[in-house]
Design a protein around this nucleic acid. Structure first.
Lengths: 218, 218
DNA sequence: AGCGCAATCTGAACACTGATTAGATTGGAG
DNA sequence: CTCCAATCTAATCAGTGTTCAGATTGCGCT
């Protein structure tokens, strides 16, 4: 609303906002850098002073939304952990946040999950994977998950939640309501948790998996 | 090799082949219709006599590769079912095929899983979802999976396999070798199967899920 | 205060894209 | 052998990502 300045001042953030809105409206590829620039009220070449390419803008946005997902999972888990008798509720709440997000904002979720989408430089914190990791530690502490089954369990749990989220975001699997998605998340997570302890023999070793974001830290 | 004909004769299939190769080389979006046409030795506008748009070509290709995945799962399951004592080996083999495919041909896998990628007209047969469905029926028959846990179990299993496949294809999760992927698939599937029976109380009802490809048939 | 510089933004340009159209070429049915 | 519908080409259009020379401005320095 203020008078139009030659210098925008917050162009980088404004471009990210515009791009996020465009992703929501037209998907990850259904818009142009010119469109985003115009929406912010700036020439298209101005964007190149803040992002090396259109792809760099998309990658930066991808990191931003993924970090937001991590925060949502964190607060959902914290809120559920307080009064509950069942220790698993924290993990289930984090999973629900993950899946709900994919269902309610599918285009943005596809962006965050998409290949090569993340900026190798950016540190995504808290990363969804780390949230699950922490919740699983609490389950072992409480005796709900066996210590033998703990190593690598995060990846099994992540796999389950991520599978449901992507199937829903990509429209390959259809549920009638958000509540149905919550129930499906619970069923899947409870099955995985129960099966992890049951199917892991003592001293059995499973392959070493890595998350791409921790890989980069090394 | 042969003399260049004005009429290509097999242009539709040749374009699909070229597009698949380009996806493998440059991802789903890193190539142009002109490039695919040139590779086949044809003008770019010729493609529009076989596909309404570039997107239609991509959708048709997506259906083709997804059906191929279904066939690979089917034959893997059939081969594993014969001599084995453990009935679960059929399902595990199908899952391995799914995950291996995503790991070995990630760009093509992303195409097949990608949103809106499938032609609503095309019937994908056998659909990966249906292969899992059939294998789960065999598990109930053999008494490995409880009948109470059977309804909707396909979606829990699909979720698990699909999650692992997409995490690997998108590079979010890293495993050191194809063998590690096989082991991870086994661990995940065994956990889910064990947990499904264990966590399903009699007469418990879970949400009704649908697969997009069966939805279309209705 | 004012000077100057580096950061920021503009406008024009380039090669390339998906898509459309009018017209050339051809195999095959009658 | 003729004609026609299917197939392919060449030319063209608006729109894209990206670059670059130059205009504009905030900010630190004296």
């Amino acid at each position: 609303m203020g008078k139009t300045h030659y210098h925008h001042g917050e162009l980088r953030g404004a471009l990210l906002d515009a791009a996020e809105e465009l992703v929501r409206e037209h998907g990850v590829v259904g818009w142009s850098l010119r469109e985003a620039s115009a929406r912010v009220g700036v020439s298209s070449s101005a964007a190149y002073h803040h992002f090396a390419s259109r792809d760099a803008l998309v990658r930066a946005l991808s990191g931003r939304v993924l970090a937001r997902l991590g925060e949502r999972m964190n607060s959902a888990a914290a809120q559920a952990a307080e009064p509950s008798a069942d220790v698993r509720q924290g993990l289930v709440a984090a999973g629900r946040a993950y899946v709900r997000w994919a269902l309610e904002d599918p285009a943005v979720a596809r962006l965050a999950f998409g290949s090569g989408a993340h900026d190798p430089e950016a540190t995504i914190s808290p990363h969804p994977h780390d949230v699950l990791d922490a919740e699983l530690d609490r389950l072992v502490e409480a005796g709900t998950l066996s210590a033998e089954a703990r190593p690598g369990a995060e990846f099994v749990v992540w796999t389950a939640i991520h599978g449901l989220a992507t199937l829903l975001a990509d429209g390959l699997m259809i549920l009638d309501s958000p509540e149905a998605a919550d129930l499906q998340t619970e069923r899947t997570l409870r099955a995985v948790l129960a099966g992890l302890t049951r199917e892991t023999a003592p001293s059995q070793s499973w392959p070493a998996a890595h998350s791409a974001h921790t890989e980069r830290r090394a």
